[in-house]
Every structure is written in structure tokens, then in C-alpha cells.
Design a binder for these strands. Structure first.
Length: 258
DNA sequence: ATGGCCGAGATCCTCGGA
């Protein structure tokens, strides 16, 4: 099964590019972030026509997450972080691989900039709550994959110039420690697990010719629970969608699970 | 020359993103 995660930066502005991506990469499940629309305006039909069911937690203008899936996703949960319902940033559901049930958690972590504002404290609260909920969940269910736009640069190697980001909400030590804390509950950052010292990115700003100069950062991740690690066959950052006309500023991360 | 973008939604600008 191929699982993919992509911050599309508006599902309606990106519809043509998303359809091209589905046709060429054929993921079984695509986790999308920043769909930037309410459910009533979500393009269900376009995805249905190419064989995907949609599961949508929408919001007007900002945020919003969704699953596209060839097969039905069971037990969809819009309320995993139950006291943060004002921002549509997380959706959870169950999929099956052979006999194993896997909990898929699709997240869009708050950006947190500028750091001297309540946006930064909101990011920390949101991450603390996520860690708390995952800690509880992993006791009962060992098979978890958390995918999405984490808005966290895990390490120096994961950004074109780390010195520029030391005081940034994406790279501050305090935030990277929370990423470690989450991983230490029993996960692996599977991109880094399979690519020990490779420098690849999932995001390039629209500004300053960042794509052309490869001024990027790796902020979209798959965290896979330890007992699923042997089921992961490959992980790949697919740069094609970022090279297209009218691209999202993010590009998909993909993995294969057997 | 050291800045250069993009999307949504309400107006021709503001906010948010990273």
C-alpha cells in the first residue's frame, strides 16, 4: 500500500495538480493538509471520478485536513484533540493492511511564527496535547502512523541554512525537543531512518526563487510506530509536484507499507 | 540592485502562511 502526505495549499486552487499527481503516483491513501475550504465546497466529485473517497475536516480560508482513499477508511475521528476544535488541523481513521489495523493520524501543526506572539504558545500547547493523546493511544493500539505537515525542522541537516532559523518557530530547540518527545513515545521518523545523511526537502517558499536555489526545508514527515517499522518498504520525497505550473509550496512524501 | 509569492475573502487591501 502506498501512503502519501501533501500540504496542497488550497484543494480548490490545486485541483488540477492533485489529479495529475493521483494519476501518476497512484497512492492508495493521500493525506492532505491546508485544504483551505469548508466541506460544502470540497471537490468530492472530481476525486470520486478518479476512484477516491474523501474524508474531510474543512475550515473556511485556513487550515483543513482530509484523507483521499481508494478503500473505505473506518472510524473517522475529527475530534482527537478534543479541546482544540476551533482550528481544523487533525483527522484520524483506521485502515487495514493484511490483517493489521493501522491508525492513521493526519496532522497540520500550527506554524507558530512570530515567536513573541500567542501563535507560538498555541503551537506549543497544540504539540503538548498531541503528545499527551498519542501517549494514551499507543498503550492500546501499537500500530500508528502520524503523517502530515509538522511545521518542524528536525535537525540542522533538514534546512538549507539552519543559522537563519535558530530563533524561528520551525527550528527553535524547544520545538525540536517536542518532536523528539513525540518520537520517544515509540516512533521513527522514517525518512531519516532510511536516509541517514541525505539532504532533501519537502517545502520551498514561493519567495526569493527558493525552489530554483533549493532553499528548502524538511517539515513534512511520517512517524511510524516501532512495531510497523519492518512493514515499511520505502520512503520517498516526490519533487515532481513542486516543479509544476501553479504548484503548492510543499511537495508530497510517500511511503510503501506491506 | 540584497528583493523578488500566493490563496482566500472581502473589496482593489488585509491576513496568514513558512
Amino acid at each position: 500500500m502506498v501512503l502519501s502526505s501533501w500540504n496542497v495549499n488550497s484543494v480548490r486552487a490545486r485541483i488540477e495538480n492533485i489529479l495529475i499527481y493521483l494519476k501518476s503516483s497512484k497512492p492508495d491513501i493521500l493525506m492532505m493538509q491546508e485544504i483551505k475550504t469548508e466541506e460544502k465546497n470540497f471537490p468530492f466529485n472530481e476525486f470520486e471520478k478518479v476512484g477516491y473517497k474523501s474524508y474531510v475536516l474543512g475550515q473556511k480560508s485556513y487550515n483543513g485536513v482530509a484523507f483521499l482513499s481508494k478503500k473505505k477508511i473506518e472510524n473517522i475521528d475529527f475530534d482527537f484533540l478534543s479541546n482544540k476544535p476551533d482550528q481544523a488541523r487533525i483527522i484520524k481513521g483506521d485502515t487495514k493492511i493484511n490483517t493489521k489495523t493501522i491508525k492513521l493520524i493526519n496532522i497540520y501543526v500550527p506554524n507558530g511564527n512570530p515567536v513573541e506572539t500567542e501563535k507560538y504558545s498555541y503551537k506549543k500547547e497544540w504539540l503538548d496535547l498531541l503528545i499527551k493523546r498519542i501517549k494514551k493511544t499507543i498503550v492500546d493500539y501499537g500500530n500508528i502512523i502520524i503523517g502530515g505537515d509538522f511545521n518542524i525542522i528536525p535537525d540542522k541537516i533538514d534546512v538549507y541554512d539552519y543559522k537563519k532559523y535558530e530563533d524561528d518557530a520551525l527550528f527553535k530547540l524547544e520545538i525540536r525537543k517536542k518532536f523528539r518527545e513525540l518520537i520517544n513515545l515509540g516512533f521513527h521518523d522514517i525518512y531519516r531512518y532510511f536516509n541517514n545523511d541525505k539532504k532533501e526537502y519537502t517545502f520551498w517558499d514561493y519567495q526569493a526563487r527558493s525552489w530554483q536555489n533549493n532553499y528548502g526545508m524538511r517539515i513534512d514527515h511520517f512517524l511510524v510506530s516501532n512495531n510497523l517499522l519492518n512493514n515499511i518498504k520505502f520512503v520517498n520525497i516526490n519533487k515532481q509536484p513542486r516543479s509544476k505550473i501553479k504548484p503548492s509550496d510543499h511537495t508530497p512524501i510517500e511511503c510503501k507499507i506491506n
